[in-house]
Computed example of a mutant assay.
Amino acid sequence: MAITAIENYLYGATPVTTQREPQVDATQGFQSMLDSVMKLMDDTNAQIKNANREQVAFALGETDNTHDLMVAEKKANIALQYTVAVRDRVLEAYQQIMQMQI
């Protein structure tokens, strides 16, 4: 990672992760939101699998690059935290919908 990329990350110029916020189509409603959350979960799962592959490669001695290992683990951790936050918001929205009186 170049120095400029680190400076951009530290000072907020560009985000490091590639996670996308779920995009919700207003005409489709709640189902659209659930579909976008499922895509987010797939992205998170891919990040975790990548981190696991890096861990196995490092443990087997196939690579000695700790930098890539730590970056993969950090990306997976951030993706998981983001997914948990989105899940909490979805559950909160669902509970509010269920409490509405018709």
Rank of each mutant, 00 (worst) to 15 (best):
A76K: 06
L40I: 03
Q96N: 10
Q28S: 11
T83E: 00
L69V: 05
N50A: 08
Q95I: 04
Q81A: 10
M41H: 11
M38F: 02
P15C: 04
D25M: 11
Q96L: 09
P15W: 06
L60D: 03
R53N: 10
E21L: 10
G61M: 00
Y11V: 09
V16E: 00
R53D: 12
T83I: 02
A5F: 15
I97W: 12
A51I: 02
Q28P: 12
T17Y: 01
A59F: 09
T18V: 05
R20N: 15
M38P: 10
Y82D: 00
I3W: 13
M70D: 07
M1P: 00
V71W: 09
M38R: 00
D68V: 04
D42W: 02
K49I: 03
V37P: 13
S36D: 02
E21C: 12
E54S: 07
Y94L: 12
Q95Y: 01
L80I: 06
T18E: 06
V16W: 08
T63I: 06
L60S: 10
L10F: 02
T83A: 04
A85N: 15
V37F: 13
Q101T: 11
N8W: 13
L69N: 09
M33I: 12
G29S: 02
E7V: 12
Q19N: 11
A79T: 08
